[in-house]
Deep mutational scan, measured.
Amino acid sequence: EPSQADLDALLSAVRDNRLSIEQAVTLLTPSSGGGSGGGSMDAKEILTRFKDGGLDRAAAQALLAGRTPA
């Protein structure tokens, strides 16, 4: 399960175009075949909204942490 520091680094990389959204989703869902963790939004949607400015960093982190299976 990614830590808050991992999520923060991942969000920074996506925002700075050092990591594509697809690459980030793969890192967030290493063994689930890329499927959502059952959250209301999947990781790709969360990351896309964050990059487009629709979500701030704290909200994106909380959503990603919340949808990651324990």
Rank of each mutant, 00 (worst) to 15 (best):
1 E>G: 09
1 E>W: 15
1 E>L: 13
1 E>R: 10
1 E>K: 09
2 P>E: 10
2 P>I: 15
2 P>T: 13
2 P>M: 15
3 S>C: 14
3 S>V: 15
5 A>H: 08
5 A>R: 09
5 A>G: 10
6 D>K: 10
6 D>E: 15
6 D>L: 15
6 D>H: 13
7 L>D: 02
7 L>C: 04
8 D>I: 05
8 D>L: 05
8 D>P: 04
8 D>A: 06
8 D>S: 07
8 D>K: 06
9 A>G: 06
9 A>M: 14
9 A>L: 10
9 A>K: 09
10 L>D: 00
10 L>Q: 00
10 L>I: 12
11 L>D: 01
11 L>N: 00
12 S>G: 06
12 S>H: 04
12 S>L: 09
12 S>R: 08
14 V>M: 02
14 V>D: 00
14 V>S: 00
14 V>G: 00
14 V>L: 07
15 R>I: 14
15 R>L: 15
15 R>E: 15
16 D>M: 04
16 D>I: 02
16 D>W: 04
17 N>L: 06
17 N>E: 09
18 R>I: 12
18 R>F: 05
19 L>K: 02
19 L>Q: 02
19 L>V: 07
19 L>Y: 05
20 S>D: 05
20 S>G: 04
20 S>K: 03
21 I>F: 02
22 E>C: 05
22 E>H: 06
22 E>N: 07
22 E>R: 03
22 E>D: 12
22 E>L: 12
22 E>P: 05
23 Q>H: 10
23 Q>C: 09
23 Q>S: 09
23 Q>I: 07
24 A>P: 00
24 A>Q: 00
24 A>S: 02
24 A>L: 03
25 V>T: 05
25 V>F: 07
26 T>G: 08
26 T>E: 14
26 T>Q: 13
26 T>P: 03
27 L>K: 05
27 L>M: 15
28 L>V: 05
28 L>T: 02
28 L>K: 00
29 T>M: 09
29 T>S: 10
30 P>E: 11
30 P>L: 11
30 P>H: 07
31 S>K: 05
31 S>A: 11
31 S>H: 09
31 S>G: 07
31 S>N: 13
32 S>K: 04
33 G>H: 13
33 G>M: 15
34 G>I: 15
35 G>F: 11
35 G>P: 14
35 G>E: 12
35 G>Q: 14
36 S>H: 12
36 S>L: 15
37 G>P: 14
38 G>Q: 10
38 G>W: 13
39 G>N: 10
39 G>Q: 09
39 G>R: 01
40 S>Q: 12
40 S>W: 14
40 S>Y: 13
40 S>M: 12
40 S>T: 15
41 M>Q: 09
41 M>K: 08
41 M>S: 09
41 M>D: 05
41 M>E: 08
42 D>A: 08
42 D>M: 08
42 D>Y: 08
42 D>W: 11
42 D>N: 09
42 D>F: 11
43 A>W: 07
43 A>V: 15
43 A>G: 05
43 A>Y: 14
43 A>T: 12
43 A>N: 05
44 K>I: 10
44 K>C: 06
44 K>T: 07
45 E>W: 05
45 E>Q: 10
45 E>A: 07
46 I>W: 02
46 I>G: 00
46 I>E: 01
46 I>K: 00
46 I>V: 10
47 L>W: 01
48 T>P: 00
48 T>S: 08
48 T>L: 07
49 R>L: 15
49 R>A: 12
49 R>H: 07
50 F>W: 14
50 F>C: 01
50 F>P: 00
51 K>L: 09
51 K>W: 04
51 K>D: 01
51 K>Q: 04
51 K>V: 04
52 D>V: 06
52 D>I: 04
52 D>T: 07
52 D>R: 05
53 G>H: 04
53 G>V: 01
54 G>H: 13
54 G>K: 15
54 G>S: 15
54 G>Y: 15
55 L>G: 01
55 L>K: 01
56 D>R: 03
56 D>M: 04
56 D>T: 10
57 R>N: 06
57 R>F: 15
57 R>Y: 14
57 R>G: 04
58 A>Q: 13
58 A>C: 08
58 A>E: 14
59 A>R: 06
59 A>H: 09
59 A>N: 07
60 A>C: 05
60 A>P: 00
60 A>D: 00
60 A>R: 01
60 A>V: 08
60 A>G: 01
60 A>Q: 00
61 Q>F: 06
61 Q>S: 10
61 Q>R: 11
61 Q>L: 14
62 A>N: 06
62 A>M: 08
62 A>R: 06
64 L>F: 03
64 L>S: 01
65 A>Q: 09
65 A>V: 11
66 G>W: 07
66 G>T: 08
66 G>S: 06
67 R>H: 09
67 R>I: 12
67 R>V: 10
67 R>G: 06
68 T>W: 13
68 T>K: 12
68 T>L: 12
69 P>E: 12
69 P>M: 06
69 P>V: 08
70 A>L: 04
70 A>T: 11
70 A>H: 08
